[in-house]
Simulated assay, not measured.
Amino acid sequence: MKLAIFDALRLGAVDGDTVVDVTEALPWPHDPDVLTAGWWRRLCRDFAEIRPDLEKAANGGPRLPLDSVRLHAPALNPSKIVACASNYSAHVEEMHEVQRRTLGRVESWMMNFDVFLKAPSSISGPADDIVLPPEIVAAGEEIHHESELVVVVGSGGKDIDEDAALGHVFGYTLGLDITVRSAADRSRRKSYDTFSPLGPWVTTADEVGDPGDLDILLLANGEERQRVNTATLITKIPAIVSYASRMMTLLPGDVIFTGAPPGVGPIRPGDLLETRISRLGAMTLRVR
């Protein structure tokens, strides 16, 4: 299934260019407050149990054109955003030049795979603009796009075995890890409001199939910047989930950015970014 959050934080089942409101099929109260909307995290955890009711509602409900509703980020108040660094070899190579230009040196430790945290308040949706911090723009620092496959955690857990890791995934969505290129800590540079756009919906894990064979594309003002297949990830999705869970308990609804493909580059006010991932969808975002 493709599940979207739309309008007054309603739950929708997406089919083609339409969406069906399936909120009333949830077996628990729907709380429209984003800060307390535990129904979303329960959905991520208990999807297998409630899926038949959601599918029944999706098959019988009235269809709304997608362009008649406002889509929100398919994540409500996750406990954390986990993000992967240095997870495509070609991106690691290009970062040598980027760091020489923006830092005047290469930070060799940053060229190794690892995970870090972003602020959940940085999440925005497919209908929102990316807002560049005025003080960063005024200082002349570069702000880059990073188009990534994003994992949405299902059952979660601690010390998850790699062989079982995909069974702890609810689904996948598109994400942009917007990044200030400076000497500041990663979490600080990547946690400004609107620096984690997600969308347009979550495609459940069973429908996606192998997350290690997805094509990622990003266009900036119609020009191709990033194109990669997730087969070239250094650390694959099961290993990412397992590795992260050894340091922190993954909770239902948490999101994991899986790493920036090569082709990162500056964004400026007025730019239009289009990101696509095969079998997942696409979203277009304005920069201001």
Rank of each mutant, 00 (worst) to 15 (best):
R181N: 03
K118C: 12
E93H: 06
S89I: 02
V115R: 01
D254G: 03
L3G: 11
I136L: 14
V69D: 02
P261V: 05
G270W: 06
W40M: 12
P78V: 00
V69Q: 02
L174S: 02
V98Q: 15
I160D: 04
S191K: 04
V115S: 14
V106F: 12
N221C: 07
S245G: 09
K236H: 13
I160V: 05
S68W: 00
R279L: 14
D271T: 03
P78G: 03
A119K: 07
A220E: 13
T275N: 06
R181Q: 04
D7I: 05
M95I: 02
V34D: 08
G265K: 11
E148T: 07
R51D: 11
A119R: 13
R10V: 09
V106A: 13
D159R: 09
R268W: 15
A183Y: 05
P74A: 01
A85W: 09
D7R: 03
R186I: 07
G140D: 06
D128P: 02
T258D: 10
G140Y: 04
S187D: 01
G265W: 12
T203D: 02
S147L: 07
A184G: 09
V208T: 13
H168F: 08
F6P: 03
E94P: 04
V241L: 08
S124Q: 04
L9E: 01
S86P: 08
I130H: 14
V131E: 15
D210N: 15
T102D: 14
S196G: 15
E148M: 04
V19E: 08
L35G: 04
N221H: 08
A83Q: 01
E224V: 08
A165F: 09
D163E: 09
M110N: 14
K158E: 13
P261H: 01
D17E: 15
E107N: 12
D206M: 05
P78A: 01
G60C: 00
A139W: 06
P62M: 08
D161Y: 09
N112W: 00
K2T: 10
G154C: 06
S182A: 06
P62T: 12
R288N: 09
A13S: 15
A58P: 14
A138P: 13
A13P: 15
I81S: 14
D193G: 04
L218C: 15
S245Y: 10
K158W: 11
P126L: 03
T179H: 11
E107L: 11
P32R: 06
A85V: 02
L149C: 01
A244G: 13
S79Y: 01
F113R: 00
P134Y: 11
P133W: 10
R188Q: 12
I160H: 05
L54E: 00
R70F: 00
G125L: 00
R246Q: 10
S122D: 11
V228S: 13
V264W: 02
F116N: 05
E49R: 05
S68M: 09
S278H: 04
Y243C: 12
T194R: 01
V14R: 11
V202P: 12
R181L: 03
